[in-house]
Amino acid sequence: MPPELRRLLQRHAQLKRGLTMVPSSCDRDVPGIELSPGLRYTEAFADWLVPPRIIDAGFARMDPVHHDRLLHFDTETTGLAGGTGTRAFMIGAADWQEGRLRIRQLTITTMAAEAAMLRAFAEWLDEDTVLVSYNGKCYDAPLLATRYRLARLPNPLAGRGHLDLLHPVRRHWKHQWPNCRLATAERQLLGVVREDDLPGAEAPAAWLTYLRGGSARNLRRVAAHNAQDLKSLAGVLLHMATLQEA
């Protein structure tokens, strides 16, 4: 490409806007063990509420479900633009293990590790899995479906039961609450107050900064935010199930 042409194109791309140099950082610590190159895995247990054996999902017009079958999941993504250019860089999932909530998170530190992350997540699901999410039917599940398709992998979410709590929460509280975001639901129903929470909108920049050689600090805060989302998801589900009994 001739240099004048390059200059012309740069001018039109308004490089000034995009050229935010990321300072390289020595804080490059992403927690967890490396399952394969670029794929980090963390696991933690939370003693957080006690689930009944059978959970009444009638509030979402679903059959009662054994708590063993639930997989709460939430992704952190590179943006909200949609389409084939948006990806998940973190997938978190929580399930009940002997009465305790197990929180597992997969984080990629390179683009190339995406396929390994998708494969690892697929192994967490089986035929009986019932997915639990907050707006996952419209956001996380289609986004992952696109990623599995692009990686030429079968989509493990297809055909699974899926309890999306956003809609039942809206049905119950849309007239009482200022909004029905998960953060509102957890505060109203579970009394959760987050400290030093990284707003979800800053997650893409946190990962991009790390990817470009910058600090991992905010990426760790994304993981903490994601873990709290998963705990709240489990809590909101239990709350709604008891609501049904009352």
Binding site: Q10, A13, L19, T84, G85, R87, P204, L211, R212
Partner: peptide
């Protein structure tokens, strides 16, 4: 050029879309 602009990320011989936009 697009990588310089910050919309693509190069890793090895792959260029991946990285921006939060719908071009």
């Amino acid at each position: 050029l697009l990588a310089e602009e910050g919309v693509l990320h190069r890793e090895g011989d792959r260029w991946e879309w990285i921006a939060d936009s719908y071009p």
